[in-house]
Simulated assay, not measured.
Amino acid sequence: MLIKFLFLLVSKLPLPVLHLAGILIGRLYWRFAKSKRHLALCNLRLCFPELSEAERERIGRRSCEHYIKTLLETPLIWVGSARRVCRLVTCVDGGERVDAALAHGKGLIIAAMHLGNFEAGITPMAARYPMTGLFKPVKYPALCELSRRGRTRFGGTVIPIIKRNGKRAVGSQLLRALKRGEIIYALPDRDPPRGQGVFAPFFGVEAHSPVLVPKLVQATGARLLFCVGERLPRAAGFRVRFVEPPEGWDSPDLDVATAAVNAGIEACVRQCPEQYWWAYKRFKRRPYGQTCVYRGTVQLAPAEVNPPQAQAA
């Protein structure tokens, strides 16, 4: 009840107030959360080696501010006035691409990312289109229920990402939705568990990348669009952009298709890098034999982690 009350309270605040609080809290977070600052700067050095250290520092700090803004906007999107939530989106670029993709009849995959606030654009879409999304349950039941209800308040369905027999089982439900010609959305900009991804370039660096989206495309012939909920200056709302994928997204070669998905994410991030969440271990897993970029240790193959004991002479 306390969590719901806090969400309701925050949802009443004007967007400029939420964003001002996001800037102030974000700057404190950047200053005192040393581990997150280290992660952000490591990632920015890898992805933007051409920038000065001062410029990377500025992008990292602004990224923290936008991250806190996203957290503070969440109560508004989940429990705030429905009319107000819909009015958050003041501009839509490429909206006609959604209808064109659905007209193909094989469903549409929307690839969102931790850039700006993707929920501001995607959540209200369920009032117009049949949609299915993924969400990761959190430890606290009350917050988990708020998350589920908030993301389905305009309609649609969300599927919890849970492990069965050590693997995440969500593919069959998404396949059924696509075969019905519906929209599904996922966030393919994160590092999946070892064995559930492939290495593909991201900003020129090999990144362990999820293969769910390419596999769904290969299995159904669904169309693919990228979606960005770009935060506008001066708390003016959001510009939602639907972007066509780069060449290779529908390749039968999984490595080629995954590289194309990463290239699409990279192109979106380059449009507003300050709004991307850089303080995440995107390059945590390395190809075996390479050095971890965050700790400096070598990534060993499973057989090398616990080598068999040498036989006694």
Rank of each mutant, 00 (worst) to 15 (best):
T90V: 13
V98H: 11
A186W: 06
G181Q: 02
V298Y: 03
V269P: 02
L216H: 11
E50D: 09
C91P: 00
E206F: 09
H19C: 00
K167P: 02
L2T: 12
G296T: 04
R285W: 08
F283P: 09
A313C: 09
R231T: 13
R61H: 04
A120N: 10
H19F: 08
G155K: 08
C64A: 14
F202A: 08
N165V: 01
A200V: 04
Q218N: 13
E65Y: 05
A111P: 04
L15A: 07
R31F: 14
C42G: 03
L134A: 14
G80Y: 00
L18C: 12
E206M: 11
L18N: 11
D189S: 10
A259D: 02
E57D: 14
R61Y: 01
H208L: 12
R241A: 06
G248K: 01
A40L: 06
D253Y: 02
V17H: 05
A120T: 14
K139M: 12
L146M: 15
A301V: 00
G156M: 06
V10K: 09
R148D: 08
L71C: 12
V213L: 12
F202G: 11
A267R: 11
G166I: 03
W277P: 04
P246G: 14
V98Q: 02
A260G: 12
V211P: 09
R164D: 10
S63T: 06
G166N: 05
L6G: 14
S172T: 06
G94L: 06
G95P: 01
I159Y: 01
H66Q: 12
P273W: 07
A177C: 08
H66A: 10
P252E: 05
R239T: 02
F48T: 12
V261N: 05
R176M: 05
M125Q: 13
E53T: 07
G237H: 09
P214I: 04
